[in-house]
Design a binder for these strands. Structure first.
Lengths: 343, 343
DNA sequence: CTGAAAGCGCTAACAC
DNA sequence: GTGTTAGCGCTTTCAG
């Protein structure tokens, strides 16, 4: 009876030990390599494990080692925004490509409010994950403070503007914006507008500030929310201006495409009447006509870097910031015409 | 000394019990509600927990209850394809919106090969997750067999063509395709092409078969891989045909957009020279000009349904299949012109 | 080179 | 209504 239930249940390390004729400790060490085990016994252990299809219980292991073998990402985004974001899946793909090598899992938790978010981080600390990656960094991000009180390694994606003991994965968002503005000015553009993302995000703000530094026309700055709808609305506003812009830079491609479609529907030719550029270089952007000038940001590579950095932090290395040189201006047809002198 | 180390370490249920002046069992039950606890002691327990910032250790709980409080998704996709997929993030968002309510986490694991995939599923079974959602279902999917041998609830996304004891979340992909073809025929189209997704996926095949049933021109069927590049290639092939199609249906919007941009670059007007339709209704598609006819597939809602179904299975309910009535043809400008009689 | 045994932090009988 | 105690399946001293 008992043996029948044993057979039905998942095999445990004890089963493997019994079949291999060794102790549990030996089985454990055969896998971890923390002790030298004779090749003969190793063989027997592995054979037994294979026969039984044994896989160590991750919860038992987590409890014993205080390591979850998982890293976490807590997302406070609205599901609608998550659903239309092109950065996120690529970033995840990069993270996973690093984690997969070491069979570390990624634990994702989407939360609706701050209370839940705080609980989620605490849960991560308490057995769910060994470290977290923090996205959508704000200028004064309460999560950074919370994490400081937890003993949980973290990597911040973006340049946190204050002192922090966490590793940051930074990018230079200003240069490509400045480069783009220079390109447009060379083509005669003088009224260049910018549709930014939410300005409390550090990366949106960095782009907006580069825009202001480069073109200095604050009256042509609009704040969107990365959605197509907001891109369209901002574009409508800008084009309705008495002296409309001759070029618009958007903080992402979604807004740019929505914007340029709106402009075309209004009878403007792209790029002849209006030059347009995005940011992020969505996979579609090069396939549009006219193809969209954008800034490739290598989200996947940033995911890899962030994951590798986090694993290093978890392993006990000193946190440090890394600047990923990933942003690259990609000039395409949508900015490829001299500005018309009369608008 | 000991007390100092205690203070530094994460608080455990014992700490809470001690501070509240009760037993561990009482703390446990105060949270689980599996026992009636007097309001007075409950208060004290919660107060102590709050003071200590105690959060139950998920690994300890998992070990004791044999429940991970997590559900898993194992992805065998190439990171590149993951990165450019619009279905996935929306689906995840739907899944999470259901899981979040119950503070259940989502464990994601991307794997490179079949061995790793099998290990991943076994790891899910052994403490990582209480159940899994299976995506990208193939016609003869070995994973279904594997899962049958594991004691792991699973929900299959798509109509598995064989007998199975797992819940399926199905959709009717044929109707919108037939509807679309009818619409095109009404406008005079006779040479209607289809750029399918990989035909070993059940959903790609369903769409392709509906196409064949509705238009019956197998020589105008091409197999893509959902990427923009493959959409472009297939389009180039089709347009180079002696008698080129006057309309092309694509199995997703990415291929459709890449395709119609290519066609335009060749001097064809959309929809006047070539009608084009996609599938999935990406958030951008309505903002393109011409706006792209597509089929909205409500990936988020399917995520919700799949998650809810999985939770029910995990709770011990009998698995069952659900057909989500989510596909909806959205006619837009890209199919809004009578076919020209001469091509 | 290998075993025995003591936990990891929680839950769930079983007592009272 | 509450406390005691025995595990859950691993890892890791401590012995040998």
């Amino acid at each position: 009876m008992t043996s029948q239930r044993r057979a039905a249940a998942s095999p445990t390390i004890s089963d493997v030990a019994r079949v291999a004729g060794v102790s549990k400790a030996t089985v454990s060490h055969a896998y971890s390599g923390k002790r030298t085990i004779s090749t003969a016994t190793k063989e027997r252990v592995f054979a037994a494990a294979r026969d039984l299809h044994w896989v160590p219980s991750s919860s038992a292991r987590a409890l014993a080692t205080h390591r979850a073998n998982a890293v976490g990402i807590v997302l406070a985004r609205q599901p609608e925004i998550l659903a239309s974001d092109t950065f996120f899946p690529a970033f995840i793909a990069g993270v996973e490509s690093v984690l997969a090598e070491q069979e570390i899992a990624l634990v994702l938790q989407v939360v609706a409010n701050r209370t839940a978010e705080e609980r989620a981080y605490r849960a991560m600390e308490h057995g769910r994950a060994d470290g977290v990656i923090v996205l959508d960094l704000h200028r004064d991000d309460w999560r950074v403070e919370l994490l400081t009180t937890l003993r949980l390694p973290a990597v911040l994606l973006g340049a946190y503007p204050h002192r922090t003991r966490f590793s940051c994965v930074r990018t230079d968002d200003a240069s490509p914006v400045l480069e783009l503005i220079a390109h447009l000015r060379r083509q005669g553009h003088r009224r260049i507008a910018h549709v930014a993302g939410p300005l409390d995000y550090v990366h949106s703000r960095a782009r907006a500030q580069a825009y202001l530094a480069g073109s200095g026309t604050p009256e042509l700055l609009r704040e969107g929310d990365f959605s197509a709808g907001s891109g369209r609305r901002a574009t409508a506003e800008l084009l309705a201006l008495p002296k409309r812009p001759t070029a618009i830079l958007y903080a992402n491609d979604t807004m740019a495409i929505a914007g340029y479609s709106y402009a075309r529907a209004q009878g403007l030719a792209i790029p002849d009447d209006l030059a347009v550029a995005g940011f992020d270089d969505d996979h579609l952007s090069e396939h549009l006509s006219p193809a969209l000038t954008s800034v490739a940001t290598a989200p996947r590579r940033r995911g890899e870097v962030a994951a590798r950095r986090l694993l290093a932090d978890i392993a006990g290395e000193e946190p440090r910031s890394i600047t990923v040189d990933c942003n690259q201006l990609v000039l395409r047809e949508s900015t490829d015409a001299p500005a018309r002198t009369t608008v």
